[in-house]
Design a binder for these strands. Structure first.
Lengths: 239, 239
DNA sequence: TGACGTTCGTACGCCAGCGTACAGTCCGTC
DNA sequence: GACGGACTGTACGCTGGCGTACGAACGTCA
């Protein structure tokens, strides 16, 4: 009964009723999504959409001066390329692989066709989009009101939820770019977490030891997003 | 030919082809939307959606400690209540009338029915939603990287685009709540703009005198959002 | 084993924005 | 025409985060 038992790897696809899912599978191609790869570029019409399996993709906006800020993050609970079926075909943001792995790729035309049928796929993708909207909104709130320390917690938790392990592979430099803060700020925040026994890290490898404590140090923003995902997509496992 | 010539007042509705528009009009009721009115509350299923005519509605998130931050803003170019057709029926944010006026109201069920037909209304609303997403994303970026001075400019321009005049009716206190900053910060920023001859204001009345200069003082965020609206919704006049 | 590139630790001065507080000014109302 | 409330001007010390910089630790590969 549980759709997540099907070894599809992407929980959004897995949440589809069997007939729809099998129809889609024919259009899917498994692809490598290495760290740093640009999945789509700002303003460019996307030829494919992507369903991550074990990678994480950041949606981020790059300013004229080169500074950047993460808007939202997509893992195996979602899909990269919503502007395709929303009608815009492109967005001002950029999608970059933040944690390497694999994913499924699907031709834009195929997805559009299926979406246009107004079936379960459309309902699911629209609900997913609303969850993504919540994540973006909460990012805006968090950027306004919360400290780098708290934001790092939120970011770690969001990443953790999208991977099967408690080990993250990312340098402080990378995290700083995602959060749009200085590396020194990330270093300080991470140091505090290590002192408290919440995480351990060295040279780009982060291990989360005490997740409950991490959640307690986090601002409310993470919970808001998590709950909203659970409400909107009860069938989508948050691995 | 220009749909905006029809005196409907809401440019999103006006952009619909005539038959669809006329079908919808029957479901619309004109309502007053006074300053401060809560259009919908966080987490509450909405019974109606709203199409502003000459008011502005802020989507904002209220934190546990009472602080708030604006996520996006909706005027006669859009609609309040997208989560209805996205499938969630509610959102964690709140919608508050930030500039009083009138709007059209429509029963949720009516909108859902029309949306489900997969006609021009669906296409239009999805594109509008993508534009709104861009606005939210850019709010997140702006909150991260830009000064209160610049954010005030962005905010004034967004408001200006949604009203037919160059006069805004809003106190510094209100603006501070929307931006999620101190009133003192807004006062300082507004003072600079007045010194430069960009605006004049007194006791809740702001007059924009030199819009080009206002745009030049603003960060890139405003333009990104404006261009994306124009690209996605070329038929929707930005009054 | 040594050299080099990557990653992390930390320090410095600087400033924008915070929280707060209080006084001035305008306006409507009685 | 005096009162009271709403709105604005401004000041104070404080702190988080910025920009920057440089050295230390680690790992890798010749």
């Amino acid at each position: 009964m549980s759709p997540s038992r099907i070894p599809l790897g992407n929980h959004l696809l897995a949440a589809l009723p069997k007939p729809e899912r099998e129809k889609l599978v024919a259009s899917l191609a498994r692809v490598d999504m290495p760290l740093g790869a640009v999945v789509y570029e700002s303003g460019v019409t996307m030829s494919h959409v992507y369903f991550p399996i074990d990678c994480i993709v950041s949606l981020l906006y790059v300013l004229e001066d080169g500074d950047s800020a993460e808007i939202a993050v997509v893992g195996n609970e979602g899909m990269v390329g919503i502007s395709l079926f929303m009608g815009g075909n492109s967005t001002p943001s950029r999608a970059v692989v933040q944690s390497g792995g694999e994913g499924y790729r699907m031709k834009s035309a195929d997805l559009k066709k299926e979406f246009g049928r107004s079936g379960p796929l459309q309902l699911l993708l629209l609900r997913y989009t609303q969850a993504l909207i919540t994540q973006m909104a909460q990012t805006a709130v968090c950027n306004r009101h919360h400290s780098v320390d708290q934001q790092l917690c939120r970011w770690l938790l969001l990443s953790l939820d999208r991977l099967a392990t408690n080990r993250l592979t990312m340098t402080q430099e990378l995290i700083a770019n995602m959060l749009g803060v200085r590396r020194a700020g990330v270093n300080s925040a991470a140091g505090k977490l290590q002192d408290e026994g919440v995480i351990e890290y060295s040279r780009g490898r982060i291990i989360v030891i005490n997740r409950p404590k991490l959640e307690s140090l986090c601002c409310e923003c993470y919970e808001v997003v998590r709950k909203e995902f659970a409400r909107l997509l009860p069938d989508v496992k948050t691995a």
